[in-house]
Every structure is written in structure tokens, then in C-alpha cells.
């Protein structure tokens, strides 16, 4: 084997492990503010993802051990689980995870080959196919009268008997849902915002969750596992679009801080849009990718059919990556300032 003969210590496994670690503050906050149900979702998604990954690797003639050890399947599973409603039924979680691992990842060629973020593909499939089940969000403990234990959450998720009334007492519309519904009922933003779910910036509890994801994201950035371009551009894209709309008509469009402090935005900005495999690679490309995803997220939230648009925005931008990369090749050492394009 020719040079170099020494390597830096980082490995894919390490990178993935850090991503998982950076999700922990978010998960802890989730459990603290929304109850332990998310742990069931996370575990189920993890087990499903590992099983699917192992089966696919075997079927494709790859060694199972080194590829399972890269932890990428678990990252996908966790990201999907954190995007799903915390009391989503088990089959929803399994279907989403299977779709993410089998179709979005392995049918595209496995690790490093998928052009779409697998977790977001799983999410998109679920929200398109099962919109009703995708609203089973547990409300923040602060606002709900009933607090489910871990076992109760598991019962809900696995479809066990649970009085309808209890379930209704636990689940709640997310702030984004509430805003959307309110605006559709011709209410102004200020009127909608009187609903108890709205907190200082985002929703009650939700804003803390967003903060926790932000914290984890900053950790990843400090470790240079993600670059600053994508999250910053993504957040800027949302803030600028929301700010512009809000400035225009504060009655019909939510304030920019509210849009920024949704957990899905922080998760998307720091953990999903930064997925290197399906994202842009050049520095300028990353900025365009982030800005585009932010703008599309706001566009879908404002004019689209879904309350949140992070997943679709990122998938749409994934689609543009080859184009973005080709046209944003950086100037090389000693290169001309303007590069001729092929």
C-alpha cells in the first residue's frame, strides 16, 4: 500500500457516534418535557433499522459487521424517530424506518450512495400515506392533564387498549399545526397566538426542545463534524423568508422567531440538512443548499398542504445537489478567479 502511511484518528463510526451523542441533549429534553414515550419510539426505530440494515447488507453481499458498526443506520433511525409524533403507532415507526433503510439507503447503493436523506424519505412517505396517524403528538407535560409513564406510552404505541379520552388528553396539536389551523380559520396571528401552546419564541416545551437540538448542533460544529455553512444558511433562509412575510403582513404570517424555534427546524438545520451524503459539498454550494432548504421550508409552511416543510424542503434540495455542486466548484490554489464551466 502506498503513502500516506498514517491516518488521523477519526473514522466514520466516530463521526456517527458524535452525531448520536449530540442528539442526547435533545432526547433528554424531550423526555423531560414530553414524557418518556420517545424512548419507545427511538428503541423501536433503532432495532428495526439495525435489522433492516443487516438483512440488506447480507442480501447485497456486503460484510455485515463493519457496516453495522458504522452506526449510520442508528443515526437514520434516531433522526426519523425524533421527527415522528411521539405517540405514533408502532407500525408507522417500523414502516418509516424500513422505507428509509431499505429503499432510500440500500436500493440507492448503501452508505454514501443515497441521493436523498433516508430519514426524510421515511418521514415523507409516512406523512403522505398516513397523515392522520402523523398527528399523534404528545403535548408538553406543562399543558396536559395526564402524563404517560414509559409503560403506558409503550401500550399506546403498540396499539394496546387505552381509553380514547386518555389519549385525547395526552395528544395535542403542535404549535405549527395550531398556527396553520388558526390561520385557515381566518384568525390573525395574534389571535392564534393566544392559544396556550405558544410560548416565548416557539411553542411551550417545543422551544426548549429546539434549544436542546441547537446545543447539540453547536457541539457538532465545535467538533468540526459539521460545517457552519449549512445550518447558518438554513436558519437564515427561514428567518429571512419568515421575517420578510411577517414584515409584510404580521396578521397573516407568523413571526420569524416562532418559525425558527420549532424543533424540526433545529433538528433539520444541524442534523439533517448537514447529512454529507445527500448534501452539497462545496462551501458555496452548502450556503445555497441551506438557504434553499430554509426558503422552501417556509414556502411549504405558508402555502403548502403540510404544517411543517422541513422534510420536503431538504428532499427537494437533495435533488438539486449535483447541479449545485457542479456550478459552485471553488477556485483552486493558483486557479483563475473565474473557472470555465464544463
Amino acid at each position: 500500500m502506498p503513502s500516506p502511511f498514517i491516518l488521523d484518528r477519526t473514522s466514520v463510526t466516530q463521526v456517527m457516534a458524535w452525531v448520536l451523542a449530540a442528539l442526547l441533549p435533545g432526547i433528554a429534553t424531550y423526555v423531560w418535557l414530553f414524557g418518556p414515550g420517545i424512548l419507545v419510539t427511538l428503541s423501536l426505530a433503532t432495532v428495526t433499522a439495525l435489522a433492516a440494515e443487516a438483512a440488506m447488507l447480507k442480501a447485497r453481499g456486503y460484510a455485515v459487521k463493519p457496516f453495522l458498526a458504522d452506526l449510520s443506520a442508528i443515526v437514520t433511525a434516531w433522526l426519523l424517530a425524533l421527527s415522528l409524533p411521539s405517540l405514533a403507532p408502532w407500525w408507522l415507526i417500523v414502516t418509516g424506518t424500513l422505507f428509509a433503510i431499505v429503499v432510500a439507503k440500500h436500493l440507492y447503493g448503501g452508505l454514501g450512495q443515497n441521493i436523498f436523506n433516508p430519514a426524510m424519505v421515511g418521514y415523507a412517505v409516512l406523512i403522505v400515506s398516513f397523515p392522520v396517524q402523523m398527528t399523534h403528538w404528545a403535548g408538553p407535560n406543562e399543558l396536559t392533564s395526564v402524563h404517560l409513564t414509559l409503560a403506558q406510552s409503550a401500550t399506546v404505541i403498540f396499539g394496546g387498549d387505552m381509553p380514547r379520552a386518555t389519549l385525547d388528553a395526552v395528544t395535542m396539536a403542535t404549535p405549527l399545526d395550531a398556527l396553520r389551523t388558526g390561520l385557515l380559520q381566518q384568525l390573525t396571528v395574534d389571535e392564534v397566538m393566544t392559544h396556550p401552546i405558544f410560548g416565548h419564541y416557539g411553542g411551550v416545551g417545543f422551544e426548549w426542545l429546539a434549544g436542546a437540538f441547537l446545543l447539540g448542533g453547536l457541539l457538532l460544529w465545535a467538533l468540526r463534524i459539521i460545517s457552519w455553512q449549512v445550518p447558518l444558511a438554513f436558519l437564515a433562509g427561514i428567518w429571512l423568508t419568515a421575517g420578510f412575510l411577517n414584515f409584510f403582513d404580521a396578521g397573516r404570517f407568523g413571526p420569524p422567531w416562532f418559525h425558527l424555534f420549532a424543533p424540526s427546524v433545529m433538528l433539520g438545520a444541524f442534523f439533517i440538512a448537514t447529512d454529507p451524503v445527500s448534501g452539497a459539498t462545496t462551501p458555496r454550494g452548502k450556503l445555497i443548499f441551506g438557504l434553499g432548504a430554509g426558503f422552501l421550508t417556509m414556502a411549504i409552511r405558508t402555502w403548502g398542504g403540510f404544517p411543517d416543510g422541513v422534510a420536503f424542503a431538504i428532499l427537494l434540495m437533495n435533488l438539486c445537489v449535483p447541479l449545485i455542486d457542479q456550478y459552485t466548484q471553488p477556485r483552486i490554489y493558483g486557479g483563475a478567479d473565474k473557472e470555465p464551466r464544463a
Partner: peptide, 19 residues
């Protein structure tokens, strides 16, 4: 070797600023 995950650490390290 594992597959490339396009993390662009190499691009950050390249002294010739290649991709």
C-alpha cells in the same frame, strides 16, 4: 476502506483547494 460519505474533510484539508 469504507464508502465515501462526502463529508468533505478532504476538501478542508487539501492545500490545493481541490474537491
Amino acid at each position: 476502506a469504507l464508502p465515501c460519505i462526502r463529508c468533505t474533510r478532504c476538501a478542508d484539508a487539501c492545500p490545493v483547494e481541490l474537491q
